[in-house]
Design a protein around this nucleic acid. Structure first.
Lengths: 213, 213
DNA sequence: GTATGTGAACCACTTCACAGCA
DNA sequence: TGCTGTGAAGTGGTTCACATAC
C-alpha cells in the first residue's frame, strides 16, 4: 500500500502544523491551501499534494478545518505524544540547549545529560545532574531515550553518535560540525549555523557589485 | 556566461570546504572525489559535478590538490574575508549566540547586539554592550553589517527582519520559529531544531513496530 | 592505470490543469 | 461558485558512463 513518501514532504509537515497551530490559537476555523501557502511561502498545489499522501482532509469549495488538519498532522508526525532525549556534551552549547525553553512545550523532554569533563560531571544544570559520559550505556539501559542530542566537540562527535546508536537510539540531533555516519535505520539532522552563514556569503559576495537601492 | 548554479550546490560547498580544511590540517596533499565523497556521504559524481560549475580544479589520474581546492572554495564562497553581523534579541538564546565560539574563527564577527527589554539594555554580554533596539537603524547607518541574526520571540521576528532589510542587510540567520518573508534579493536561513525533531519523529513513530535487533 | 570533467539518461519533486464535489 | 485532490506534464538535480588527460 505505501507509496514512498518523499523526505522533503515530511520536512514540510511540521511547518504546516506550526502555522495551523497559530491559526487555531487565533480562533481561525477554516483555511485554504491558497492562504496557508501565502503565509508560508509555499505554492497551494504543494500543500495539497503533500497532504494527499496521507488522506483527504479538505472540503472542496471550503478549504481545510484548522483544528481537524492540525490534529491529523500531529498524529501523522507523532507529535501527540512525548519524546525523550539525552544530551551528550554539556559545554557552553550543551548548557544553552538545556536552558532552551522551546523543546518541552512541544513534547520533547531531556531526561539525561552527559559529559566527559570531570569538572562538569555532577554539576546541576537547569535541573539536570550531569552524569559521567562513561555511564551513558548503563543509563540508557534503565531509561531508554528516543532521541540523542550531540553537542560535543567535533573530535568526539562520531564516537558519541556510534555509542548512542549502539544503545538503540534511532534519531540524532547533531550540533557538532561534522558529517556523521549513521546506519540507514537511524535518522540524523544537523544544526549548523556556520554552514548556513558560509553558503549565504556566496550570494552576498556576488551582490557586492550589484547595488539594489 | 553564468549558467544558473543550483542553490543546493552552494549549500554543499561549505561542507566540502570543511572536510578539505580537516584533510589539510592533517597534512593531506591530494584527495579524490571518491574519497572525499566517502567521508561526507556524497557520491563522487556529485562532487565532481558541483565543482565543475566553477572550474576545473582536479588532475585526471590523481585527484584534487587539497590546499589548492580549499583555497578555491574559500574564494568562491567569500570565506577569504571577514563578515560582520548584528544580533537582535539578547534573551537566553541570544546570549548563547554571543557566547558561541564557532563564528569568530570562521570570520564571522558580531559587531552589535540589540534588545528591546529595558532590563537587558546596557548589559555587558560577552564583551558586547546591549543597545536599545530602537537604535538599530542609527547604529547600522554608521556601522553597516553584512548579516543579521534574529533571536527574538516569534511575535517580533518578522518586524525585526523587515527593519534589518530596510537597513540594507542582505542576509539573515533566523533563529525565531517563524516562516519569514523577505524580498527576493535577501537571503535567509532558518535555524530551527524543533522542526528537525518534529520531522524525525515521523520516522521514529513508523519504526516502533519494526524491531531492528 | 587512474581519476577527472561532462553530455546524456535518469529520477524525483513541483507545478499544472481540470474533474469532481460541497 | 470555489477549492480540493490528483493524474499528467514539466523542471531541476543526480547519477551514469565514457572520452580525456595525467
Amino acid at each position: 500500500m505505501p507509496i514512498e513518501i518523499p523526505d522533503v514532504v515530511i520536512d514540510r509537515l511540521p511547518v504546516y502544523a506550526r502555522a495551523l497551530a497559530l491559526l487555531d490559537r487565533n480562533g481561525r476555523a477554516v483555511v485554504s491551501s491558497q492562504e496557508l501557502g501565502a503565509q508560508l511561502g509555499v505554492t497551494p498545489a504543494q500543500i495539497r499534494k503533500d497532504l494527499s499522501y496521507f488522506g483527504r482532509f479538505g472540503k472542496q469549495g471550503r478549504g481545510y478545518s484548522v483544528p481537524r488538519l492540525l490534529e491529523e498532522l500531529r498524529q501523522i508526525l507523532g507529535l501527540d505524544r512525548e519524546w525523550t532525549m539525552v544530551l551528550v556534551g554539556v559545554g557552553q552549547l550543551g548548557r544553552a540547549i538545556l536552558a532552551y525553553g522551546g523543546f518541552a512545550p512541544q513534547g520533547f523532554r531531556i531526561i539525561g545529560a552527559f559529559d566527559a569533563e570531570p569538572a562538569t560531571i555532577g554539576q546541576q544544570v537547569n535541573g539536570a545532574r550531569v552524569q559521567p559520559a562513561s555511564e551513558l550505556e548503563a543509563s540508557l539501559r534503565t531509561r531508554p531515550a528516543d532521541i540523542g542530542i550531540v553537542a560535543t566537540p567535533a573530535a568526539q562527535a562520531q564516537q558519541v553518535i556510534d555509542r548512542l546508536v549502539g544503545c538503540g537510539v534511532k534519531a540524532i540531533l547533531n550540533y557538532a560540525p561534522i558529517a556523521a555516519h549513521v546506519p540507514p535505520h537511524v535518522h540524523i539532522k544537523d544544526i549548523d549555523p556556520v554552514l548556513s552563514l558560509q553558503s549565504m556569503t556566496f550570494y552576498l559576495k556576488s551582490q557586492l557589485t550589484a547595488p539594489v537601492k
